[in-house]
Design a protein around this nucleic acid. Structure first.
Lengths: 141, 141
DNA sequence: AAACAACCTATTAACAAAGTAGTTTAGTAG
DNA sequence: CTACTAAACTACTTTGTTAATAGGTTGTTT
């Protein structure tokens, strides 16, 4: 399961992308548009800033803005930062001590295959792709 | 993350498949071969029995055995039973109340695509496939 | 009847997710 | 220079899940 941390991060970056101005967008606006607690948003963002996905400015007129273009920002990059990694089993996690049964493990290749597929899937989707996902009028009742 | 419940279940069924006899295999042997606590194995199996994957017999000479052939037993079937479902987000879980933002949600299709891919991946792998995954001699040092 | 193995119920410790609260620091506008 | 604003930091709480463990009961076979 993808936790709120990862899902919210995607929505927040998407919000920043869709509401870009020449300046900075304060979190207050993002939180209110996305209906996420401001305090929780504040908790989530620092890691995205550290990684260079966003820039921030303190004080009046300050806020956040995207540092990269929406095209360059893949969901895999966001999820890896916020969810740690998406390894389906402990022995494939980054920095895990190597399993001494790996050589005889019948299921390792299954998990590895799934993990590779997961990385590939999310790597190929960018924030820009999500922007194209405008709601279809088919859905309007 | 796939929890121990799902991973152990796969290993247990694989163990039953590889150690089939004309009769029944007691859990004591499975647990000891797989190095899983007997008590924990006992907790996990009932759901697999209910679903008709395995048969059991009480008492002396009793134990478990596969009901289906290893070819008919897909990992998806096992994981769905033991992990609930593998929906990456709450709104795709079985029996979830429909999200009222679904029509305007920019990310739903991403999660749905990932979920479809997940089901497809695990559906195409059977216990019989895992039996073929014999450890390669390349790994022996 | 004795041995054996599945079955059932309750309890526990450990951990992570999700969010809240309050304070501090930094930058801008007047 | 001062007031305002918004990010940044720290600590806490609540809730739920995972991964077991413990002990007793029921049902079969020899």
């Amino acid at each position: 399961m993808i936790s709120t941390k990862g899902r919210y991060s995607i929505r927040i970056l998407l919000d920043l992308a869709e509401n870009q101005t020449s300046g900075y967008v304060p979190l207050k606006e993002v939180a209110s548009r996305q209906e996420i607690s401001l305090k929780y948003v504040e908790r989530i963002l620092p890691v995205l800033k550290e990684a260079g996905l966003i820039d921030s400015v303190h004080g009046k007129g300050g806020g956040y803005k995207l540092r990269k273009s929406p095209e360059e920002c893949s969901l895999w990059e966001i999820l890896r930062l916020t969810e740690g990694d998406l390894a389906p089993v402990a022995c494939l996690k980054e920095g895990a001590d190597p399993c001494n049964k790996a050589a005889e493990c019948r299921t390792l290749s299954v998990w590895q295959g799934y993990y590779d597929m997961t990385i590939d899937y999310f790597s190929k989707i960018s924030i820009a792709d999500l922007m194209k996902n405008k709601p279809s009028s088919d859905y309007i009742i």
